[in-house]
């Protein structure tokens, strides 16, 4: 993910130069004010639903639908979180992590191989093969729910997590391949030519030279694939059962009855699902990607 610092930027926060370090004093200051003003706007816009969910999750059920809306929980309570935790949010979480993680791994391995072939190798029928891959991603998934159900039922997988992992792994492929091809094309051919001169095989050059160079791209692709699976609703709804529901379906189960929506629990569940995920992605990006990228480019 592109959250990795640019290759020229020092990796740590403390040594990072700010905009102030160049140019005359006054102008950078106003420029900096503008910068932080823009940051404030971006944060408010991007985070508004999360902030509102955070506030709502601390409200009493009556406060969540008070008219007009109270902007602040007057009697803050953690009861929504407790209710979500007493419900099975832990299990939904685990299911989501397993389904998304395994699918992402499978998708990434397969897609990286294919993307390399498409982007770097010459072979006959390439156009046709790529057309085949892309065209399968063009059919809307909701027209495929039932045919896929029949296939999965045929091998007795309905109700298990494999009923999600298999379709997720496969249907994530076209998108992942397209993205990875774009990143692969940024790597100059000269590197592989040099490797070939050193007697390295194509496969060796791919693994040791090219892959390290596109680590930010790989990570971005993996995050995109992962979050796509994580958020998926239709397959998750139709192919799972009580024990295997994932978060998007689980949140509906936790927060909605036939006629009522418990906005407190809905918000609490949303906060609990999204905050750790984003924190984890940011952490991974900082610890792994920047390290690997720097190492890869030097090596």
């Amino acid at each position: 993910m592109a959250l990795a610092p640019t290759t020229t930027a020092p990796a740590t926060e403390s040594s990072r130069p700010t905009a102030r370090s160049r140019g005359p004093l006054l102008k950078p200051l106003t420029r900096q004010t503008l910068l932080y003003l823009a940051l404030a706007v971006i944060i408010v816009v991007q985070f508004l639903p999360l902030i509102w969910a955070l506030l709502t999750s601390l409200m009493t059920p009556q406060e969540t639908t008070s008219i007009p809306a109270t902007l602040w929980p007057v009697h803050p309570t953690l009861s929504s979180y407790i209710e979500a935790l007493q419900g099975d949010i832990g299990r939904y979480y685990l299911n989501s992590i397993i389904a998304s993680l395994v699918s992402t791994l499978v998708t990434m391995v397969l897609a990286t191989l294919a993307a390399y072939a498409f982007a770097r190798l010459r072979f006959r029928w390439k156009r046709l093969a790529l057309l085949f891959v892309v065209s399968l991603s063009l059919f809307p998934p909701f027209s495929q729910v039932i045919p896929l159900y029949m296939m999965l039922q045929g091998v007795h997988l309905i109700g298990t997590l494999l009923a999600l992992i298999i379709p997720y792994s496969v249907f994530g492929l076209p998108m992942a391949i397209l993205i990875l091809m774009a990143f692969l094309q940024e790597v100059p051919f000269e590197y592989e030519e040099a490797a070939a001169l050193d007697g390295m095989s194509r496969l060796g050059a791919f693994v040791r030279i090219v892959l390290p160079m596109i680590i930010p791209g790989l990570f971005t692709t993996a995050v995109i694939v992962f979050v796509g699976d994580w958020n998926e609703y239709l397959f998750a709804l139709n192919y799972t059962t009580t024990a295997t529901y994932t978060l998007p379906v689980g949140i509906v189960i936790l927060s909605q009855t036939e006629f009522t929506t418990n906005f407190g629990v809905l918000s609490a569940a949303m906060v609990m699902s999204v905050v750790p995920l984003v924190a984890l992605i940011l952490l991974l990006e900082r610890r792994i990607v920047s390290g690997l990228t720097a190492g890869g480019l030097k090596g």
Binding site: L3, Q46, F47, P49, L50, N231, Y233, P248, V278
Partner: peptide, 14 residues
């Protein structure tokens, strides 16, 4: 960067 990630990491239906 967190602001970039958030909207998208929330399940669409939720």
């Amino acid at each position: 960067r967190a602001a970039i990630l958030f909207p998208w990491a929330i399940p669409t239906a939720t």
